[in-house]
Design a protein around this nucleic acid. Structure first.
Lengths: 108, 108
DNA sequence: TCATTAGGACACCGAAAGGTGTCTTATTAG
DNA sequence: CTAATAAGACACCTTTCGGTGTCCTAATGA
C-alpha cells in the first residue's frame, strides 16, 4: 500500500478519449459538480460518473462534497509518470536519430 | 485517409504494459524478429504477434520481411502526440500550481 | 529431399470495458 | 412540509481485449 494506493494505471486512465476530455474540462474550470460536467457529454450521468471514478482511482482527480453535490477537481501530478516515460523516446524521433544510429553502426 | 491511415489510437496502444515493454525492447535493439521477441514473454507467440499488430496499427512499429522471419523495428514519431498532450498539464503539477491559484482567488 | 522452423490466419473463450436503466437516500427550494 | 434535484449503488447488456490452441504455408538447414 503505497501512499493513496493508486489502483488504476495512469496509462490506462488516459487511454479513453472521454476521460481525456474530462481532464481538459477540469483543467479549465478548477472545480465542477457531476451534474454540470454531465451536460457536456452525450452519455448519461452514470457513465460520466464511472469515468470520473476511474480517474479518481488513478489519482488524477480529487473530490469534495458540497451539500448534495460532489465537486471534482484535477490533480495532474500522476501525469509526471507519463511525461517521464515518453521523454525517454524523445531521442528516437528527433533528427531521425534511429536512422543515424544505424548508419553509424554500419560504418563502424 | 490521413497519411498511413493510423487506425489505432496511440494512447490506446501504449495503455498496455506488454506493449510498453515491447517498445522498450525495440528501443534497445533496433530490429528483432518475432520469435526472438517472444522468448522474453510468458505468453505465446500469437499473443505477442497481436500486440505487435496493434503497435503497427498505431504506427509505432515498422516491419520488414527477411527470409521466413518478420523483423520489427521501433518508430517513435507518434509518441510526439503524447508528449504534446501531457506537456499541457505540466504547469499543473509544477510548484503545486493548482493550490497556489486557488489561494490567489480566495485572497482576491 | 525432407524434417524443422517462422509466422500468418482463424476460431474460440473468459473477463473487463463502456454503456444503459432503475431504485434509493440526502439535500435543497418553494 | 413537500416536491425536485444530486448522485451513489446496482443489475444488466453488448463489445472489445487479451489470451489460448490449431491449421497451413513458406523458407531453411542437414
Amino acid at each position: 500500500m503505497n501512499e493513496k494506493s493508486q489502483v488504476r494505471d495512469v496509462y490506462d486512465a488516459i487511454a479513453d478519449p472521454t476521460r481525456r476530455k474530462l481532464l481538459q474540462m477540469l483543467a479549465d474550470v478548477e472545480e465542477l459538480p457531476l451534474h454540470e460536467i454531465t451536460v457536456h457529454f452525450q452519455m448519461g450521468r452514470t457513465a460520466v460518473s464511472k469515468h470520473l471514478a476511474i480517474l479518481k482511482d488513478a489519482d488524477l482527480v480529487m473530490t469534495r462534497k458540497v451539500g448534495r453535490e460532489t465537486r471534482y477537481r484535477l490533480n495532474a501530478t500522476p501525469l509526471q509518470e507519463i511525461q517521464d516515460w515518453v521523454s525517454f523516446y524523445e531521442g528516437f524521433w528527433k533528427e531521425r536519430f534511429g536512422k543515424l544510429k544505424l548508419l553509424l553502426e554500419e560504418k563502424q
